[in-house]
Design a protein around this nucleic acid. Sequence first.
DNA 1: CGAATTACAAACCGACCGTCTATCCCGGAC
DNA 2: GTCCGGGATAGACGGTCGGTTTGTAATTCG
Lengths: 231, 231
Amino acid sequence: MPRMVKHPEVRRGELLDCAQALFLERGYERTTINDIIGKAGVSKGGFYHHFSSKEEMLEALAARFAEAAVASVQAALETPDLAALFRLNAFLAQARHMKVEDAPQLRAMFDVVFKPENLVLYHRLNAAVVAVMTPVLVRIIAQGKEEGVFNVPDAQAAAEIVLQLGASTHDAVARAIAASGTPEEKAAADALEERLRFQGLAIDRILGLPDGSILFVEPGSAQVVMAAPRP
Amino acid sequence: MPRMVKHPEVRRGELLDCAQALFLERGYERTTINDIIGKAGVSKGGFYHHFSSKEEMLEALAARFAEAAVASVQAALETPDLAALFRLNAFLAQARHMKVEDAPQLRAMFDVVFKPENLVLYHRLNAAVVAVMTPVLVRIIAQGKEEGVFNVPDAQAAAEIVLQLGASTHDAVARAIAASGTPEEKAAADALEERLRFQGLAIDRILGLPDGSILFVEPGSAQVVMAAPRP
DNA sequence: CGAATTACAAACCGACCGTCTATCCCGGAC
DNA sequence: GTCCGGGATAGACGGTCGGTTTGTAATTCG
């Protein structure tokens, strides 16, 4: 093969892109280094020049994904003079908006990530997202605490707990996805939505807010995400 | 090697015991099948006669662990005529009692399971425990709902969320363990205890109970578990 | 007591991660 | 423009490890 030299960041990006595509197609474990370098048109030496291991690459990928996720909701943080509760709701609204905006990609991703054999992938991604979202949420919660609106002993802990609630829906989402394409599809989506609504309620309560203070799911939103493409 | 035939259950148990010891010593990924069969004195064919894959063995191990865990707290379920809140507190008390009873083993286990390279192991164990604990907790919560004491839309969802709260402390526990042996050890244990106290508060609130209704941590208990053996 | 089934031994296979050496290219020193 | 040093890349290779296959001893059962 002829030699092809590119700027490190470009190469790194290409490798990450290819790996992402393959991971989201076959999962992490079932994707081999050779698959990645084959798709990227890079040699083994090239790969290991940029990443010290397959594991590290997954970490980098998760980090990149999480950065993108946080960037798309950070507007809610930069608006000055916004009450904490409004800020929190703006934050959640941004997150919802992002989700419906690229619902198809998201759905395709969910299809793979929530398969039981890809638990590792899921947890890495989740951990990365939690890691970058935590400081964001801490600021909001700390503000709400100062305002005397949120009633929590510790903002950091509250943020971690609230974010971890997302993982508690893993199984529920997995069930909904598994039911996708079957007659129970609609019922499953409804069940998921109910589940998410409860999650929103749990956030209210953990933060010491009256029930219904925050808007976590909009009616029918589960349907929208669940019914995008067909595998 | 001479041929050594044993009752299937016995062999299976021995293999599980050896695997458990090794997993808790080096972690899942770094333990090879050869390590396991070497320790158990079984051939490869023998191993694959009882387990279809390394993965399946981990599953079986997690299941066995979870069964043991649930068995030790099931007394709280069988006591008749107990109000749901009392039953829940009895359940939690049993869990605490079990933890301090074999604190040393638990501590040694934590040392390994909470290492970052053993995230997979942690999540499998957690998933298995959640799986068997969920129906137990569902019964308690459903009872409390009927009594009109707990205020939740759905017992199943509530149980899953409450159990998943445990995972939210993963990082906090990991931090405490990492600080073990350093001068910050005591501070870390205190921080962990504070964190757990908040987790208890979160459970109160999620279930729609007044703050402080349940007793989740006893003062100083974090210290006890954290200060058992030395690696 | 013999046939079928179960439990086990051990050689073997193939996949795959990571290494290693040999180049090649590019950018700066001069 | 030339030279050169190190970053970037190629691709063969090694060693490990999960899993398979084949053969055989023990056990159960008709």
